[in-house]
Nucleic acid binder design. Structure first.
Lengths: 156, 156
DNA sequence: ACATCCTGGATATTAATCATCCAGGTTACG
DNA sequence: CGTAACCTGGATGATTAATATCCAGGATGT
């Protein structure tokens, strides 16, 4: 799985902790975790295209959350970064070689179907968790983090 | 996800349909779906190491199922080919940069925890399905397949 | 005007996957 | 015996995806 998913999730939480007042620069978000700024910027752009973040161009511009954390699921973020494809990709090797059934279209591969069920269970669990849930758990585990983050992003 | 998972699953089903009487060569299993023989062989070796297949070396050698399909889950095969790591890998970017909490060990990252839940749901679904289930569904969708496979592997 | 900063495409770099090859050991068969 | 078939494991190369940077263009505050 793309490392950008982790960056995107942390950045969304950071944006929520910083607050809505102003947009935050990609370089600044990257600086907080020492991530490559240009590359994080790409991931943030994906979040914008997915409608999770909104971006402000120009001077004093940057990124902010397009909606509140309780309306963003893990599934939203994963799909935005990773794309819609499922992990298991059926290449239909049934249809290759002497085993191929000539002519008529075959029913769906039972193996792809089975793997698809597992993928569905994964997505369901991702869709069941909002970033608000994650944030709440994070604050319970590290109560000092929100303030620390707010302070760091506050000074110039 | 590794393409070898698909090959391994199809090969296990084929071995079950062929029957227990004799071992089947990697080249022969590969030939049925026009897969690269040497590379499929590698995947079969992984299945042997995982105890899913057993191999007989030497002339007239090959591979056979080490146990019946109802005792092999999708999880077994996926783990054998893909390894034990989960898809989402937490790189603990919390601990990098100015956001790092100095000193004491931090509680588990709430994001990694949340992604881990989804991974668990995925694995549970994989572990809940045996290859016998998959075989049954495949035979319902394509009743002619078992015979066709048996015949192709039967002649020299 | 000018500096800042997002956008999107092009491009380079690095790692993972896909695939082949070979030497070594094992077994059937003549 | 000895030879051909076949698995084993490591080394190696080719291909593709992930990672990362760069730049021209447009937008915006000062």
């Amino acid at each position: 799985m793309n490392e950008g998913v982790e960056w995107a999730l942390h950045s969304c939480l950071n944006l929520a902790w910083i607050g809505e007042e102003r947009a935050v620069t990609a370089a600044r978000l990257a600086g907080y975790h020492e991530l490559p700024p240009a590359y994080l910027n790409k991931q943030l752009q994906s979040l914008v295209r997915a409608g999770i973040l909104s971006s402000v161009p120009g001077c004093q511009g940057g990124f902010r959350l397009a909606r509140s954390l309780d309306r963003i699921t893990l599934m939203d973020v994963v799909t935005a970064i990773e794309g819609p494809d499922e992990a298991f990709r059926c290449t239909e090797i049934r249809g290759q070689g002497p085993g191929a059934t000539t002519g008529r279209p075959t029913a769906e591969c039972a193996i792809a179907d089975a793997m698809g069920r597992a993928d569905l269970a994964w997505r369901r669990e991702l869709a069941a968790q909002t970033l608000a849930d994650v944030r709440a758990r994070a604050e319970r585990q590290a109560p000092g983090a929100p303030d620390r983050i707010r302070r760091w992003f506050a000074d110039l």
